[in-house]
Amino acid sequence: MEPSLRRNLLGLATFMMIEAAIFMIFIWAPTEQVMGIVQRIFYFHVSCGMTTFLAFFIVFLASILYLWKKDKKWDIVAHASAELGVLFCTLVLLSGPIWARPIWGTWWTWDARLTTSLVLWLIYVAYLMLRSASRGSERRTRFAAVFGIVGFVDVPLVYLSIHWWRTIHPVVIKPSGIGLAPPMLYTFLVSWAAITILYFYLLGLRIRIGKLSEGVEELKAIQYSGV
């Protein structure tokens, strides 16, 4: 299959999934009895949160693969995924307070999950800053890969330490089962799938941009070397 055709098909699938998720969230799913209409934020909020973890996990994997194989391709993947992870993490941090204000009566609270999300956001914004501050592309990729590994390894420790410090976040998904009515569960699963497929679609686009800009750099290098 042509790469452009594959991209367009994935784009179409993303569009349809997001439409289906929006329909289910706003029309099909019942309104939660206690929290009311604002509970509908949950579907995209949690989906974005899970996609954030996926994105940062892919940064971690791609960073290891880059240091191991020294293939520039993995660096482009890591960079693309880090940018998307920061994007989805920002969405989590914005949609959370909109829900928390009417339910908890406060925009922000230093709960374990909230604080962990904020620390995650800080780690990967730092990752992007490190990339833009490094001189020389070969050095930049090595530095970014090392920090991509250090940052992800830290996540469980950050979560554990903040969890011991305090926690009040509602735990919807427990080991014993999911505390959701079936229509809500299906709506959540479709939303999750939609956001995940959106992530992969954007990742593909971002990797393509990364490769193109890499190509431009190479062409420039050839031109200036006077060949």
Binding site: V119, L122, I123, A126, M129, L130, A133, S134, R135, F143, F147, V150, G151, D154, L157, V158, L160, S161, I162
Partner: peptide, 18 residues
């Protein structure tokens, strides 16, 4: 890196949270 002493705490402090 270009930012040197500004970048170190930005990278280091989030990692040091635990």
């Amino acid at each position: 890196t270009k930012l040197r002493e500004i970048l170190l705490p930005i990278l280091l402090f989030p990692i040091l949270v635990p």
